[in-house]
Design a protein around this nucleic acid. Sequence first.
DNA 1: CTCATTATCTGACTAAAGTCAGGTAATGAC
DNA 2: GTCATTACCTGACTTTAGTCAGATAATGAG
Lengths: 293, 293
Amino acid sequence: MTASSISDIRRFNRTVTQRIGVLQDSYLSRGRPLGEARLLFEIGLGGADVRDLRNRLALDSGYMSRLLRSLEKQGLISLTKDVDDARARRVELTGDGRREWQSYDDASNELANSLLSGLDPKAQDRLVSAMTEVERLLSTASVQLSVESPDSSDARWCLDQYVKELAGRFDGGFDPANGNTVSSTEMTPPSGYFVVARQDGTAVGCGGLIRRSADAAEIKRMWTSPSARGRGVARRILAMLEDIARDEGFSRVLLDTNRSLNEARTLYARCGYVEIARYNQNPYAHHFFEKTL
Amino acid sequence: MTASSISDIRRFNRTVTQRIGVLQDSYLSRGRPLGEARLLFEIGLGGADVRDLRNRLALDSGYMSRLLRSLEKQGLISLTKDVDDARARRVELTGDGRREWQSYDDASNELANSLLSGLDPKAQDRLVSAMTEVERLLSTASVQLSVESPDSSDARWCLDQYVKELAGRFDGGFDPANGNTVSSTEMTPPSGYFVVARQDGTAVGCGGLIRRSADAAEIKRMWTSPSARGRGVARRILAMLEDIARDEGFSRVLLDTNRSLNEARTLYARCGYVEIARYNQNPYAHHFFEKTL
DNA sequence: CTCATTATCTGACTAAAGTCAGGTAATGAC
DNA sequence: GTCATTACCTGACTTTAGTCAGATAATGAG
């Protein structure tokens, strides 16, 4: 890392976050304590579960309770019991609350606009694309991979999403019981491995590795959340699974894929996989790949 | 402004400033109130005048006084009377204070580094240049121009810098009494105009417009602070002076410049000025320009 | 010397933010 | 049914941040 990069980043951290952060707060807290304003804005037009809000804003439950009470007293929100869990509560914005939220939303737009004013159109475009780039790269950097049990709740959620997505994309739908099923024990060490990618605590992708033969491992259940696509998450999961396979002494990795998954095929080709002949009877698979480690 | 630009900026504001801002605060306030930590960091290894600190951090004098007292009690700073002005005070970090400052500085570097880790080298480069671009464009956008008296303290400071810089750059030095002197009344409405560019309250550039003849105005005293160069400040000052000249009914603008000021010549050429014959006896001028409005 | 101004300090506040211990009621595993 | 856990509430705090109205002493202009 060069010293000048570090100082560039520090200057960015210092000036940009400070400048925008202060503006943001002042736009948001128009006569209302910042804490309340933030909470109200976070609730959103669609309402929210109190539990989620507490997690998202990292607030103490007592403090949260008091903030909600205050907003309720001001007639901005209404609290109802959760239908599924009578302990939990749901917050919804009232009419007044919605108006208030709108004014915050407008202020946010105004702030975004004010950053552009004072720049000529070309510079505006450059600013927007540089901001997009920073945002994209920082999100990319904040994705973290970990090996864990395919039975963990995040892993199960990912696998569930995986199945749903394939069902939507394959021509004749997808029945996980029909294809080459993979049991969770097959993906649990020491038989196999399962990797979950997370961003800020929420799962955004997964992939499994199982033993196929003495020298070959197989990649299964590769999935990336739509929100995290285009950021190299799948590529990193793949690389991690290959590293594991190498460590486990396998000399090659196999995988199969459906003809409708074009991005996947492109990824495999880019990562050094070569297409080979069909090596199993999976009815959903049309392309077969291999990579020598 | 397109709606997608706005939403890109909002996403940037939301995620980037939040992500970095929170990290920054948590790195900085290791067990110490954020306000104290910020103040300590702002004092810096070289010490500072209390007055300057109050301005930079925009703190109430009472609050500031208390913060300083607290840091002093903790043995982190020492306060001395200013030698020139016995009312004012100077703060210096003690040994402990310096150690503390160092740990903040290290934390800042660590934060910068942590943003890069998890990205491959190419992506790191892209992130750094995108950040630099955002920082540069946002500072550009925050430069504001205003017409004011050439006798205002900021204006006088700019003119002072202008003279100092020319004295350093001209081959045989520069004596403002020798060249074509310009009195401040000549640059004061309605005879003429003076523009000051400011960024976050500090002057970063200036330029004057005076009457030369019934149809021609002349640009004088164009200067941009080294810290603000390369951001189009001079171009904006020039454009503003031209607008004023146009409003005042002049049909052309004149200016002269020294051969050592290459950037200035480039700027004038780019802004539509054409070189003309010598029109005055200014011993420091080698190039003469004109623009028809 | 007078007098407005400047730089700082002090005391007396307030509001906002956050913490902590304990309490109630619902839930889910066994 | 028992019992640990979860979701939330309440009351009693503390800390942090910030404001405001004077007081004090030095400075500088006239």
